[in-house]
Design a binder for these strands. Structure first.
Lengths: 334, 334
DNA sequence: ACTGCTCATGGAAACGATTCCATCAAAGTT
DNA sequence: AACTTTGATGGAATCGTTTCCATGAGCAGT
């Protein structure tokens, strides 16, 4: 019936305004033009309801706009909030956001980076997994990357280029220290720490915080799945009934710890004190309400997105404060 | 130092293989070619590590690949799982996913749809808010849309085009009915229902399920924010101390109900029975563990993405089953 | 041997924007 | 008056791919 709805292009606008396409382009992207021409062009554009096609622009400038975001798991409330921050910043720039989930797996991450290159996306906010070696070629290819929540494991021979990637992080070190001090203040001496592989920095911070009292057996790593988290938590509690307090590196491990304790009939906070990294909405609904180290997840995302948009200023690493929120999951050692 | 790293193009491959660019394109996209040429081209492509630029392709085909996903709130666990489903399906097609959050606001949604058009994205999975009028022009512009979790409010004079949009839904009606039957089975007669504006279909299902016993004052709507949810929950409990059971239309309202009850010293399940729509991980950690109507969120996303990818078959609406999971938040009326 | 057919192939057009460059007029400088 | 400078302007090139179309080779049927 109706014609196939050809898109109105810059050519149509130029024709209606009686000018060349170059002039239209200039006017619309803020170049110089006489007041009269400008008005004619703007008029024509609104009359035709013209919206420039991102496709043409992208091809010409050899880059597609928008921000790519790589997170380990979008169903994790922490990363969801981080994503929300990125989305909210991107929206203020009018840029679309493409999301990929890595599952904390370097291989999948490399795949996704490949796909970004294919799309000529050149702005990425990423929560890196693994040692980040796959990032080096991408950086050389002109990608501008900002790390969020973690930076890459810095091996001794690591390429310099990686060290220069800006990052927006929560102050893990201070967060862990505060939590540990809080627990030792309550009399606890045998404190366990549950962390995922991606959280080696928190693991290290924990080791530093407990200092001489460190018992390496109490620092237990988990893979990035619910099952693995539960296994790690239950394993620790069974293997070492002498631990009186546990700190977890993220909310999934916190959940696992609560479940495992409940299953093993270990009462919180009577038999076990628990501090969880990241304040999720349910922490308050839990029985008992959980004492947590809150992180500004949304802020982390927002700031990271801001950094990746302003490539002008040489960006540096930003560290945002954490906060210990005391609820009901910790008690004195008994 | 090193050259500015020009991207290797199809031309380079053609040159190295000693054929024309058209042939390279055909080979790479599965067109016909002699076995020998095919091999030469493939060889050259791998030797040069050639990856076709999505930019060129997109411009030529007048559409950028990928799937767009519009959800009200990515930090809501339900939509996060839905998004995860979409992402997982999209990945199996090798397609990138662009996410936008609408905040359940038709205006923001319209903005986002506009931005999609600008990007020439033509495949959208959306959780629509409002009456969906802004979708009609988009559909006419050739967008293929699949609704997830909800369909649009169907006003009497609604355009036919909207009624033909395929949708993937949870079986709300059955879920609500099962929950209501469960509660009445426990002796409850005054059952409250908390729902967000976007959940009018569940609201209607609730009205139908309680039938004659309907007390319109017990059906209370909330806006899409934590505060509004809390206000609605607290309001209901204060205004009508005679309600002995509450069903909530989503998890945020469930959270609000728990909090409000706790604040008002209404004990669950002794004084109030609570059933929440959507089984989130924390439902089990809550005190008491919440009885829920579980929805296959990830599946909904996956199937919706599948539908939007296969535009070949005329797609129809899919309804996925819900399941009542009884935990500890309901008791007999006292 | 001629005709008709299929099939592989490459040149060139197309997609829609930005941007280089040449042109031209008007204003300013000597 | 002759020159330079400035600024607006439009034509054309460009980005990398897909696809239309013409060409020519090979082959079978008569």
């Amino acid at each position: 019936m109706s014609s196939p709805q050809r898109r109105t292009t810059i050519k149509d606008v130029a024709e209606l305004a009686g000018v060349g396409v170059a002039t239209v382009s200039r006017v619309l992207s803020g170049g110089s033009a006489s007041a009269e021409t400008r008005e004619r062009v703007l008029d024509a554009a609104t009359k035709l309801d013209y919206r420039p096609s991102a496709l043409g622009r992208n091809l010409r400038q050899q880059r597609s706009g928008g921000i790519a975001l790589l997170v380990p798991d979008i169903t994790d409330n922490f990363y969801a909030r981080l994503a929300d921050g990125v989305l909210s910043c991107a929206r203020s720039y009018g840029e679309p956001v493409t999301i990929g989930v890595t599952g904390d797996d370097p291989e999948q991450e490399a795949d996704l980076v490949g796909s970004l290159l294919e799309q000529s996306m050149d702005r990425v906010v990423a929560v890196p997994s693994g040692d980040g070696e796959m990032w080096a070629p991408a950086l050389r290819a002109g990608l501008s990357v900002v790390f969020a929540d973690r930076r890459v494991w810095r091996a001794p021979g690591q390429q310099r280029v990686l060290a220069e990637v800006p990052a927006v992080l929560a102050d893990d070190r201070a967060g862990v220290r505060t939590a540990v001090e809080y627990l030792t203040g309550l009399g606890h001496r045998k404190i366990g720490f549950l962390a995922r592989h991606g959280q080696s920095h928190r693991m290290q911070a924990f080791r530093d915080a407990v200092g001489d009292a460190l018992d390496e057996e109490l620092v237990v790593p988990a893979r990035a799945s619910r099952d693995s988290a539960y296994a790690a938590a239950a394993g620790l509690l069974q293997r070492r009934p002498d631990v009186t307090a546990v700190l977890t590196g993220d909310n999934m491990l916190g959940e696992a710890a609560v479940l495992a304790a409940r299953e093993l009939d270990v009462r919180i906070p009577r038999d076990l004190s628990l501090v969880m990294f990241d304040d999720v909405p349910w922490a308050e609904l839990c029985a008992p309400p959980l004492t947590v180290v809150a992180q500004p997840a949304q802020d982390i995302g927002y700031r990271a997105a801001e950094l990746v948009m302003r490539q002008g200023r040489r960006p540096r690493t930003v560290t945002l404060p954490t906060q210990l929120i005391v609820r009901g999951s910790c008690g004195p050692r008994r």
